[in-house]
Amino acid sequence: MGLADIIADVDSGEKTLTIRNRDEPEPIVRMLRRMVDAPDVRIREDVPAAGSPGNLVILEGDGEGTTQLAISSIADVGNSVLMVNSDLYITGTRSIDEVDTPDVLAGLDETTFTVSGKQKMLLIEISRHVEALAYRSGGSTLHTGFQHLSRIEDERGTRSVYERLVDADVSVHVYGTPDDSPAIPDDISVHADDSEEIRTSWFVVNTDCPDEFKGALLATEVGPNEWTGLWTFDPAVVDRVSAYLDETYGA
């Protein structure tokens, strides 16, 4: 069993994003369609009766009857992933205190995505969301796979986030190949490993905390800068990933 097997074991249920009463420009809708493009995600638009709130994105789950899971404004979705790029996090412009992932994006949990290019911003946002859960819970354990340990250092914003996590009493464990990385702070547990799984996996897992703060992003590199993965807030799945990392790389 490995991280890719855990991804494959999670059932990816169908979900619908409804854009309601939009007067935002059409390019916003096109960007949203590209960002959340996945076999199990359907996007549609509707115009309800006059006087209804506008410029909303509504997430619904398909099952016995349609269940409304979350609502966010188009503006919030745009400000988090559509109208930004990864430099916002790399440079530290958006701090961990300011991470406020729209509910409709977090609610796409347990949906399998294959992303590349700009679409990768979706996974970056969720990784920051899981880190923010760790920061807000305090005293939890965070496991993060960087592929290469040097990545915690070559992105100024990332190192800052992880120093603040340590200051918040989060037990931080980082995983990656033992490349020529500068010294990582002593309070961070380093798991240097050159296995193929570590070199091709991207994960952020928060555990050892109340269930409402548990979360995990899991992704596997399937091509040059192309990733297949998902995120989950199911405590049982999160604990399973954490146990696997402890058993396989804990030493």
Rank of each mutant, 00 (worst) to 15 (best):
I7G: 01
H173P: 06
K118V: 10
S189K: 00
W202R: 00
G145W: 00
D87Q: 08
K118F: 12
Y175H: 10
P102E: 15
F233K: 09
D246P: 03
D239A: 14
T177L: 11
I188M: 12
L82N: 05
V29E: 11
A168N: 13
N85T: 13
V115F: 03
S52I: 02
H143F: 11
R44G: 09
D179H: 00
P53R: 04
V238T: 15
D208T: 05
N225L: 12
D40E: 13
I71W: 02
V190C: 09
D97K: 08
Y162A: 00
Q147E: 09
T207E: 10
D208N: 14
T101W: 07
F113R: 02
V81N: 07
S80H: 12
T114H: 03
H173T: 01
G176I: 10
Y249H: 05
I58Q: 04
P39Y: 08
D40F: 02
Y162C: 01
G2W: 12
E247C: 07
G138Q: 07
N225P: 00
G63R: 13
N79W: 13
R136C: 04
T93G: 02
I43R: 09
E155R: 11
V115C: 03
A132K: 08
W202D: 01
D40R: 14
P27Y: 02
R240G: 04
G229R: 02
T67K: 10
F213W: 15
C209K: 08
I90A: 06
V84T: 14
D40T: 14
D180A: 08
G223Q: 06
T66Y: 06
S86Y: 08
S242T: 13
E14I: 12
E64I: 00
G63D: 15
I43N: 08
L123M: 13
T220R: 15
R30Q: 14
L149K: 01
L82S: 04
T220K: 15
L165V: 11
K120P: 00
S137V: 01
A243G: 04
I124W: 01
V29N: 02
A132G: 01
P53M: 05
A219M: 14
L59M: 03
K15W: 08
S160K: 11
E163F: 03
K214Q: 14
K118H: 11
A236Q: 09
G92E: 07
I28T: 06
V241D: 00
E131D: 08
R164V: 08
D167T: 10
M83D: 07
Y162K: 02
T114E: 06
W227T: 02
V237Q: 05
L56H: 14
E155S: 10
V205S: 11
L88D: 10
D97W: 01
V10M: 06
L69W: 09
I74F: 12
E24H: 10
E163I: 09
G107H: 02
